[in-house]
Amino acid sequence: MKTHIIPAIRLTVACLVLLAVAYPLALWAVAQLAPNKGEGFLIEANGNKYYSNIGQAMNDTNYFMSRPSAVDYDASGSGASNKGPSNEEYLQELESRIQAFMAINPGVERNQIPADMITASGSGLDPHISVAGAKVQIPRIAKERNLALDTLEELVNKHIESPLWGMFGPKKVHVLKLNLALDALSSMKGGQHAN
């Protein structure tokens, strides 16, 4: 063993230089070419900047709501509920989420609520909702903002992000982009909620 100790230490130093110093620095240099210099993609609107990949809590009923989150969209950390599929307490919580969802979306039936609107995401920071999750909220928004159902349907359809190359993965809707467009639409129509 003794004969291998000195080479081990020297080899570790050499590898540290290559793998823990040169490698990240080279990547950092590459990142300077990327949008926002590799500090996370931004959406800028109304003089404000938002991280586009990080979901936001949306509890106002006149906006499209995000999914439930185990960490309440606190992006200093991240987390999921980790509830097992058979956990009774968890299933009761889901039931109360369904009740709450129907209460703020009058007229919506149980079987119209898509699973993503009552289950917490893996990251707790999911920036997207499903297409069905956006559409089921249209009647509520229409009423709150005095907008026509057709107009909102069109707005949501315009914000459906199709699968990768039209072939791979799920369809989705980016909640923040949709809500920003919603605000723009309201202010154009002179609605009262355009703040």
């Binding site: 999921a80 898509p114 995401s121 989705k172």
Partner: peptide, 16 residues
Amino acid sequence: LGVNQDLGAMEGKDIR
């Protein structure tokens, strides 16, 4: 519970 599960088991999964 009667909700629509077309998306599959979404607890602990992200939409994208």
